[in-house]
Design a protein around this nucleic acid. Sequence first.
DNA 1: AAATTTATTCCCAAATTATGGGATTTGATG
DNA 2: CATCAAATCCCATAATTTGGGAATAAATTT
Lengths: 259, 259
Amino acid sequence: MTSLERMIGILDLFDGSRMEWSVEDLYGRLGLTRSTLYRYLKVLTDAGLLTSLPDVGYTLGPRVAELDFQMRQHDPLITASRPVLAQLVETIPGIALLCRRYRDRVLCVHQEQNTQSFQSNYERGRARPLLRGAASRIILANMPLSAIRKLYDAHPEDFHAAALGASLDAVRGTLRGIRQQGWDATVAEVTSGVTGVAAPVFDRRGAVLGSISLTVGQPHLAPDRLAFIADRVVFGAAIVTKSISHEAPAESQERQMSD
Amino acid sequence: MTSLERMIGILDLFDGSRMEWSVEDLYGRLGLTRSTLYRYLKVLTDAGLLTSLPDVGYTLGPRVAELDFQMRQHDPLITASRPVLAQLVETIPGIALLCRRYRDRVLCVHQEQNTQSFQSNYERGRARPLLRGAASRIILANMPLSAIRKLYDAHPEDFHAAALGASLDAVRGTLRGIRQQGWDATVAEVTSGVTGVAAPVFDRRGAVLGSISLTVGQPHLAPDRLAFIADRVVFGAAIVTKSISHEAPAESQERQMSD
DNA sequence: AAATTTATTCCCAAATTATGGGATTTGATG
DNA sequence: CATCAAATCCCATAATTTGGGAATAAATTT
């Protein structure tokens, strides 16, 4: 492990279960010498990613908020998704999400809402369970086999509990079915009383980046209604995939801007 | 400059004016060799702070959203401020902000709102001008002289344009007045037709961390009304200062949690 | 106010570790 | 399938980080 990774790894400690770390606690937790620890903390603090509150400890710094703001405003994936999600919830009242895979988790990165009839816990930045809910399963179904195998070998019981299959082959079969359908729908897997419908977003190489999903307030949908919704979600996801696969025109402008 | 700083410095390029960087552009911009650049990008990407979108380039990654989420939920400064800001806008309709100094900028890190009569541009993560507006000026007024001098020497004309003074001594006088009053009020310096009132938040050492401010929809306030508002804002800021200066009881619990 | 303790930064020689140039692999394109 | 470009790997060299302790700064106590 390099010094770069060790330093960045400090950020992993601020995971919600513990947001305030004293130098002593960090010293005990990480296997670093004091000089090195102070050095790393200084770099992260100067960058604004951490900040030191005397007698409280180190905490995440304001730079995090600033980077997140830049991202909300200008991120190409969010920019491409925003009108799609907005149009989806205008046509079909509910909550539309853009989710993104990252390490072994699925993260909500944008939300558009057009209903007050139910609440979603999945605001920007919140992680969703990897094996449950349409938004996650459609991503899983489009991940490379090697990644699936790694996940399965680590926690086969989770796959069984999520009714994805009792063996790796069974899981592959389930996921192949979802993948070939091009969308997935789940009822009450993450929130009771609602149905989620999701379709995958790919990068230009065909690797799955994330998903677009729509959650509606009905636990059961008539088949033709479900088909209608799925069709729209798939269509929207394909638009996002196209938007970010084909960004050549914008590039020349930006180059001029930055000179 | 160390390799740690060089790597973290890559994040500075994603500042809103340019969110998509190809390896070629990064290679041209930073003075790094290709091997080193790829190494840095891999570390940042593995950490989730960057992601590579084929044919688009590198962009900020989902980890930024996740860290921001953790912060919104559990950051001690935000946690301490939330009830204070909420109570302020319940008593006095307007927009309450928690701002934080970071490098040479003032950043909005939390907002509570209780009016629809006017809009605020200052959502979480947005930078405010350093020399204008009560929320910034009350911070400036409480910064150490050495920092003020550095800022003044870099851009004296900005201080003059902001009517803070035409010489360093004049600026010091203006800021001393604000500091001794304990709060600051400005009319229409950042948004027209509104009045902002701010008070400073300190860490336990007495160094200014940021400010709490309340923006109300009137351009002119009767003196006793202004005094009333200022009194409440100062009171609220003092509560936040106390909250984060005196966190001893929580520590023993946390230590047990982490074992 | 002085003294004691604790926390942070500085310093520098030793050696671990990052570096860079090229070779190799991977993947896209025609 | 061949060609070109992009990304990763490799390894000897040397530049950089590292760690231990000294120096300084801050906090706490007497």
